[in-house]
């Protein structure tokens, strides 16, 4: 399971720079990220090269949480996401949020957050449908 880092960011200038500054100094590489926002705050979610280290160096300054997410291969072609969404939907797995990044070659990587109790089911149905699930180490060092 891939570990995602989530950070609570007040909606003010320089908050993101503070996070990235710390990660730069600690030589933690960001693989992928997404931000959700309200008028008051945002949540920055990241896949990084070393989630435990990221948590350790950030938690003095920020609210940080770790969440298990699924990283799976996404065909970088029309219908790629549709295939995965259909497989999960047909199995009654609700996707809470997702984001993607382009990995190597023609594969994109999809980060999926589903309800905790649905996670192993999601992995099973995706695996049965021939979708490749990545190991954490592959993602962290990609």
């Amino acid at each position: 399971m891939v570990t995602q880092i989530s950070i609570f960011l007040p909606n003010r200038p320089n908050q993101l720079a503070k996070v990235t500054g710390i990660l730069m100094k600690e030589k933690v590489n960001i693989r992928a990220l997404t931000v959700s926002e309200t008028s008051d705050y945002g949540i920055l979610r990241m896949i990084v090269s070393d989630p435990d280290k990221a948590q350790k160096v950030l938690q003095g300054s920020f609210l940080v949480d770790q969440t298990d997410v699924i990283a799976c291969a996404l065909k970088d072609a029309p219908g790629g996401l549709n295939e995965i969404a259909t497989v999960l939907g047909d199995s009654g797995v609700n996707i809470e949020y997702l984001y993607a990044f382009v990995g190597k070659a023609t594969q994109a990587v999809l980060i999926l957050r589903v309800e905790n109790q649905m996670r192993s089911k999601a992995i099973d149905v995706l695996g049965n449908a021939g979708v490749r699930i990545y190991d954490p180490e592959e993602i962290y060092s990609m």
Binding site: L63, D65, T67
Partner: peptide, 15 residues
């Protein structure tokens, strides 16, 4: 103020 206990990756929960 939020606490580590109330914070998660879920915006729905915070809202």
């Amino acid at each position: 103020e939020l606490t580590p206990k109330t914070f998660s990756d879920s915006m729905a929960e915070l809202e």
